[in-house]
Simulated scan of single mutants.
Amino acid sequence: MLNVYLSGEIHTDWRDQIENGAADLDVHFTAPVTDHGASDDCGVAILGGEDSKFWHDHKGAKLNAIRTRQAIEEADIVVVRFGDKYKQWNAAFDAGYAAALGTSLIILQPEEHDHALKEVDAAALAVARTPEQVVHILRYVLEGKLPK
């Protein structure tokens, strides 16, 4: 079984597209918490409130990092999606962490991000434009089959 961590933007259904496209493959997917409110507020919901937004966010980031680090460390492949609408600073961090661990890295991004992400792309083993291309990569890795 291949363990794949799906990191990055949470505002589109790209994860569902990959999971559905790879449903017939021996792949286990993990991902960050994609409920934006839960992700932002987990620290104060579990550990108690904060007067400062900085410390509110700090608590949440640390709890999310527990999940993220474990998932990246257990992954055979990390797919990092950089979307159109927001700058995903956390996704860049995840890509760097995976690269530092020597984990295979696939970047999923639109062409207009090529210049801004050139260093991230240089660390990746593949830069895909669509979720379908990521599925084709996974199929090739597992089965050695090219798309029809």
Rank of each mutant, 00 (worst) to 15 (best):
N3V: 10
L6R: 05
L6N: 08
S7R: 04
G8A: 12
E9H: 15
T12S: 15
W14E: 11
W14T: 10
Q17F: 07
I18W: 10
N20H: 14
A23Y: 06
A23V: 08
L25Y: 10
D26C: 02
V27L: 07
H28I: 07
H28M: 06
H28A: 13
T30W: 04
A31R: 15
P32L: 10
P32R: 11
H36E: 14
A38E: 04
S39E: 01
D40K: 06
D40L: 08
C42G: 02
G43H: 04
A45I: 00
L47F: 08
G48K: 01
E50F: 01
S52T: 15
F54V: 10
W55H: 14
H56G: 08
H56I: 06
H58E: 12
K62V: 13
I66K: 11
R67Y: 09
Q70S: 12
I72S: 05
E73N: 09
D76I: 00
I77T: 06
V78Y: 02
V79S: 03
F82V: 03
K85E: 15
K85W: 14
K85Y: 13
K87I: 10
Q88C: 08
Q88H: 14
A92K: 02
G96H: 01
Y97D: 00
A100N: 07
A100Q: 12
G102T: 08
G102Y: 09
I107V: 15
L108I: 13
L108H: 12
Q109K: 15
Q109H: 14
Q109I: 03
P110I: 10
E112S: 15
A116S: 15
A116C: 12
K118M: 13
E119M: 13
E119A: 08
D121G: 12
A122N: 05
L125V: 06
V127H: 03
T130W: 05
H136A: 15
H136M: 10
I137F: 10
R139N: 13
Y140P: 01
Y140F: 11
V141T: 01
E143Q: 09
E143T: 12
E143F: 00
G144D: 02
K145Q: 14
K145S: 14
K145Y: 00
L146M: 13
